[in-house]
Structure formats: structure tokens, C-alpha cells
Amino acid sequence: MTPTAQDLIDFVYAEARLIDERRFPEWLALFADDGMYWMPLEWNQQDQWLTTSLMHEDKLMLQVRVERLEGERTFSQKPKSRCQHLLQLPQVDEIDHENGVYRTYTPFHYAETRFDEQLILAGWARHQLCVVDGALKIRMKRVDLVNCDAPFRNIQLFV
């Protein structure tokens, strides 16, 4: 598979839709085996490993989250949270067929709600994609929140 710019854009939209529709196992399958989801704590944070992040998770940790969200005794999901992504048109930052590196940049607004409480977040998603067995997969999804350093209430789903 040789992805086009439109393929990358379609992928980013489809990924957000899977989260909004709570199709988490399908969403998880979008990650490469060595894929990471990273939400930094600090503005312009460079270090993934030696400082605190809000999330910095490999596929195993993401699998824990996905299974937990449907768990019988997951009390913080009784009732379940809902979320909605509003994405700007993803910008294609890099298409490098030779090295199999594809990068997009997507400003977003995100709403997550449970009971009477609604959380609104805004920020930028940076996807680094690759092709595995003929399909696009996520190698890194970096989500920078515009208020990354604010005191948050629970963020339970996936921005």
C-alpha cells in the first residue's frame, strides 16, 4: 500500500469516529504493535520517559484501558462517558514512502461528558503513521492540550 494524502486524512477522521462511537477494540487495532499514545503534561514537552506525562502508553496499557472501560466493576463508567471529536481538516506534514513515515497535524475540540458534567478540551493531534500488512497503523499519536497544565477533572476516554 502506498498511501495518498487523502488516505492519511481519511484515517485520522475514521480514528476519531471509532472513539466517538465507543468502538474501542477496533480503535485499538489501529495501533502498530509498537505504537504509542502520548499526551504531554507540559507545554512543548520534549521528554517522553523521564518526566511526567498525562498519558504515555504502549499498546498493552491501551488494551488495559479498553477492557476496563467495559468492565463489570468499572464504577467510574457507571454510567458510561460519551465523547465527541470536532476535527479541523488534518494537514499532511510528511509523506515519506521510502522510509514509510507519514505525519499529520490536526487541531481539534473534544467534549467528554458523564452525568451532568461536560469537559471541553482543545488542542492538536499529531499522528505518525506507518504501513503494516498493507494497512495504515499508528506509530505515535501525540495529543497536546492547549491547557495541558491546568487542573483537570477525570478524562476517561481518548482524546
Binding site: 506525562s53 498525562l54 498519558m55 504515555h56 488495559v64 477533572r153 476517561q156
Partner: peptide, 22 residues
């Protein structure tokens, strides 16, 4: 240490979600 902090103490942490709910 950084991993412990984010998996246990973050507002995005599933352990944190369990506790806050209680």
C-alpha cells in the same frame, strides 16, 4: 517514577478514576 506518577496519579489515570469516583 514518572511512569508510576502518570499511571496512578494523573487525571487521565485509570487508578485515579477509580479513586475519584469513590
Amino acid at each position: 517514577t514518572a511512569m508510576y506518577n502518570r499511571i496512578i496519579n494523573a487525571p487521565t489515570s485509570i487508578v485515579g478514576h477509580d479513586d475519584l469516583e469513590m
